[in-house]
Amino acid sequence: MHIPDNYLSPSTCAVVAAATVPVWTYSIRRIKAEIPKEKMTFLGVGAAFSFVAMMFNIPMPGGTTGHAVGGTLIALLLGPEAACIAVTIALLIQALLFGDGGILAFGANCFNMAFILPYVGYYAYKMIARILHADRLGAASRGKLVAAGIGSYLGINAAALAAAIEFGIQPALFHNVAGVPLYCPYGLSISIPAMMLGHLTIFGAAEVIFTVALYAFISKTSPGMLRDAAPADTAKKNSFPVFILLAILIAATPLGLIASGTAWGEWEISEIPTMTESFSWASLFPDYSMNGLPDFVAYILSAIIGVLLSIIIFRFISAKMKRTTKF
């Protein structure tokens, strides 16, 4: 779900980042007001925990693995405001130090994963827990675990939907005179199914397993640590609804495979007639892009790039060779 740079226009990035600023301000203000000073250090350690947790590949039915964002879990443990800041910092480190997610798209990524995901997940959890009359029960009660699972599922899917909409509005808003999209070329009709199929199944399932399993573990071992720990936390249950979870997953996984298969096929067949007309390799290298400038500029530039590329390729290969011959 990490949006790289150049898929969204800078103006979209600016608008979404501007929308995220009040959320950050609100979260920091709430944290300052609510979190006692002895827990300030835990914000940083909590962010480190969320970063490390993203490295874990969750085993899934069918032998595959997936990795979770974990925003809802942190919201359940520390509150949505703390989750917002923790995920923001994790995203900043990923963007700045690992090139995962764009710099300009940082605001958009935070809007999706640090605002929508934990807030939707947390409030969905609250609502479902109230509907199931579990809000007064212990943290490890069945109702709360179900609420945590559904909340995290809704959270990650809401975030994916937001990302899909950000992608999908690009070709309509930003294209050049010839109608060629400047950024993400796929409209809403492609971006929403493409993003949602994965998140409704595999990634959503990974997030649910991650949230429920960890929530159950922490509520069993140290229930006082949870944000809304009930005062009478004695009625702890050792089992949690693994069977419900497994049933949902087993039902969902093949569904996802079938669904994505048909969607891909349908889309290709319907697009093939137009493809034969519009497709030509010559247009891959449009000469309009160098218009208005003397030819020699382009020649010199391509010569420079060619020389630099060959140096880099040579150094890349020699660096790789050195590493293998050391053994």
Binding site: P181, T274, F279, S283
Partner: peptide
């Protein structure tokens, strides 16, 4: 897929 959707320049 964008090549087939009529915007081959986008890819490059």
């Amino acid at each position: 897929p964008a090549i087939f959707l009529g915007s081959p320049q986008s890819m490059l």
